[in-house]
Computed example of a mutant assay.
Amino acid sequence: MKDRPLVLIVDDENRYLQLIAMNLHASGYRTVRASDGTTAIARAEMQDLALVILDVMLPDMDGYEVCRAIREFSTVPIIMLTAKAEIAHKVAGLGAGADDYVTKPFSVDELIARVQAQLRRQESSSRPRPPRVFEADELRIDFDARTVTSDGADVALTPLEFRLLERLAGSAGRVLLANEILNSVWGPGYESADDVLRAAIARLRRKIEIDPDHPRHLITVRGIGYCFGRR
């Protein structure tokens, strides 16, 4: 039993806690629950979690604050859950460190599929593989250790930001279509979320570029997509 992945569900509505827990159990997962942000953060620190499903609207603090707090000590995949469908809320959630975003009311099948997709990504990133290190000027990316340094200083990236950087740097010199990046980094359903991608690129530039307003690594190819390094 204990080797089954443990998922933390955070929601202040008991019906959603029960609905999600029942379906996760049926899909082979264990669950632990929290109905407020303070409890969620404490359980995330104490439990060996595989994934967090986190509602935005909580009684003591919003889900964005909880997400940022968890990101201070953990890289566990986080799926935000909310009734707000506007793109600005998706951008805010991803900016806080979330890996995915599902809008209420949701299809249980879709939510389970997104949980499985996040855990597959996590598993594939932890598999042994030959050492892979990419260097470009002051930037050094260790794909296996999942670390980034700039001029020798550590750069703190969220799991999603690292996946985005890995996707671009892994195809250095090649222009990638925006929808291609969205599909491979965020997954199905995000192919048209250009605003989400632009916001993520902007955050990543602020972290890895010496001058984010004049980037040398993350290059926009207008009307097409993005490229790592100049062609």
Score class of each variant (00 low, 15 high):
V52P: 05
K84S: 01
L49D: 02
M61Y: 01
L58T: 14
R15D: 00
T149C: 06
G225R: 05
W186D: 14
L164T: 08
R121M: 09
V108P: 03
R198C: 05
A21T: 15
T38A: 13
L24K: 06
N23H: 11
Q47A: 06
I78G: 07
D11G: 13
A85F: 07
L58P: 14
L111Q: 01
V185D: 09
R174K: 12
V32K: 13
P159R: 12
T158K: 03
P215V: 05
D100R: 12
L168S: 07
P77E: 01
S27Y: 02
Y29F: 10
L197M: 04
R132M: 04
K90A: 13
D12T: 06
E86N: 09
A98I: 14
G97W: 10
P188H: 11
N183K: 11
F143W: 02
V91Q: 03
K207Q: 10
D137Q: 00
L139E: 10
K207S: 07
I201H: 04
D213I: 04
S171N: 14
I53M: 12
V76C: 00
L160E: 08
Y16L: 10
E45G: 04
N183D: 15
H214F: 05
F73M: 04
P188I: 10
A85D: 13
D195T: 05
A145G: 14
G97I: 07
G95N: 07
R230N: 10
A42Y: 02
T220W: 06
V133E: 04
S125F: 05
E110P: 10
I53W: 06
A153K: 03
R120G: 02
A88T: 15
I79G: 00
N183A: 14
Y101C: 15
H214P: 00
N179H: 15
R163Y: 05
A117F: 03
E13A: 11
L111D: 00
E13R: 10
V66T: 10
E110N: 11
R146K: 13
I224D: 06
R140H: 01
I87C: 00
R140T: 02
D99E: 15
D99Q: 15
L176C: 12
R167Q: 15
A200N: 02
R68C: 04
L6H: 08
I224T: 08
I9K: 06
D12Y: 00
D100G: 13
L119Q: 05
P105T: 14
T158G: 03
V52W: 11
D12F: 01
R127N: 03
I20E: 02
D100F: 05
T103W: 09
T31Q: 00
S184A: 15
E138T: 09
L182G: 12
L164R: 02
M57I: 10
Q118N: 08
A83I: 01
R222W: 00
L197P: 03
V10Q: 13
P130Q: 08
R132G: 03
L17I: 12
D109G: 04
G170D: 05
R71S: 08
G189K: 09
Y101P: 15
Y16W: 13
Y101D: 14
E161P: 07
E191N: 09
R231N: 04
G37R: 01
A169L: 08
P188A: 13
T31A: 02
D48Q: 15
R231G: 05
L160Q: 08
E72R: 14
L111V: 04
L139M: 04
C67Y: 11
